[in-house]
Design a protein around this nucleic acid. Sequence first.
DNA 1: GAGTAAATCGTAATGATTCTTAATAGATGA
DNA 2: TCATCTATTAAGAATCATTACGATTTACTC
Lengths: 143, 143
Amino acid sequence: MNLHQAMEILKENGYKHTNKRQDMLTLFSNEKRYLAAKDVLEHMQSKYSGLSFDTIYRNLSVFTELGILETTELDGEKKFRFTCSTEHHHHHLICLNCGKSKHIHECPMDLFPVSKEGFKIVGHKFEVYGYCDKCDEDNKQYK
Amino acid sequence: MNLHQAMEILKENGYKHTNKRQDMLTLFSNEKRYLAAKDVLEHMQSKYSGLSFDTIYRNLSVFTELGILETTELDGEKKFRFTCSTEHHHHHLICLNCGKSKHIHECPMDLFPVSKEGFKIVGHKFEVYGYCDKCDEDNKQYK
DNA sequence: GAGTAAATCGTAATGATTCTTAATAGATGA
DNA sequence: TCATCTATTAAGAATCATTACGATTTACTC
C-alpha cells in the first residue's frame, strides 16, 4: 500500500479528496508504524489548528473500513497503521513504546490444529510485543 | 483454582474476608468463563442493591494481581475469568457471545521461531475467537 | 468490646470514542 | 463561472468503561 493507492481507493469508493485526508494518509505512509488516534490528532493540529478530533476518528474508521489501515487494540486504545500487505494474511511484532512493527509471516492457525470441537471459529489474534532496539536503549538511560 | 484456594490466597496476602468478595469469587467459580465488569456488577446487584461499582472494579483488580483471575481485553473492555491453571502457560479459544472458553495447550512461541532481530520481546497474545455451539444455535434462530 | 486499618459507598473525574447539529467545502452540471 | 447538492468538518455534548476520592462502615486484633 502506498499513498497513491490509498487515495485511489478513496476515490473509487466515492469519498472526496480533502487535504486533511491526504495529510493523514501521508503521515501513515511516512511512519509505517502503529499510531494512536491522539498521535494523529497532534500531528495534524500542527498544521490545522483547531482541527476537530471527530474528523480524525471519522476518517480513521473510513480508512479502516476500506482496508487502507489495519488496526489493533493495545492497552484499551485502538492503534492504526498503514496496511503493509493487501495480499498476505500476517501478524505483527509490535514495539510497545513507539508502535514500530515487524511482520510475522507464519500464522499459528496454519501450523497447528486448534480443536474446533464445540466452537465455530471466526477469527484469531496473534501478536508479539516488545521494544525495538531504539526504544530499549532509550529506556535503559532512565534506569 | 477453586473457590477455597482463592479465598486462601486472599487471606495469605492480608486481604480481609468479606461476603462481597466471596460472592464475586463464587460467581467466577461457578461460571468458569470470561465476564465483563458489568456482568459481575449486575449479578452482584441482584443480591446487594446499591452496590458500588468501585467495589467491583477494585476487587477485580485485586483478584487479578493475586493471580486468582486471568484477564483479556475484547472490544475495548476487560474480561475476567477464574484462572484455569496456575501451572501451565496456555491460551484460549473464546466465545464472543457468552465468554465461554476452551484451553489451547500449544503456544505459537514454542512452535515456531519469531525473528527477534531488532526487538526485545516481552510478551505475546494468542487468542482464537468464535461462537460456542449454544450461542451459534441461538444466533441462527434470529436469522 | 474498643481501636485500627481495610473495605465499601456515593459520586465525581477521566480518557477514549461516538453522536448531533449546524456550518463549510468539494464535485457536478447548467 | 456559478449554483446546487451532498459529503465533510467543527464544536461540543453524550456515552461507555474505568479510576479516583472523601466519608462512612466493617472486619480483624488485642
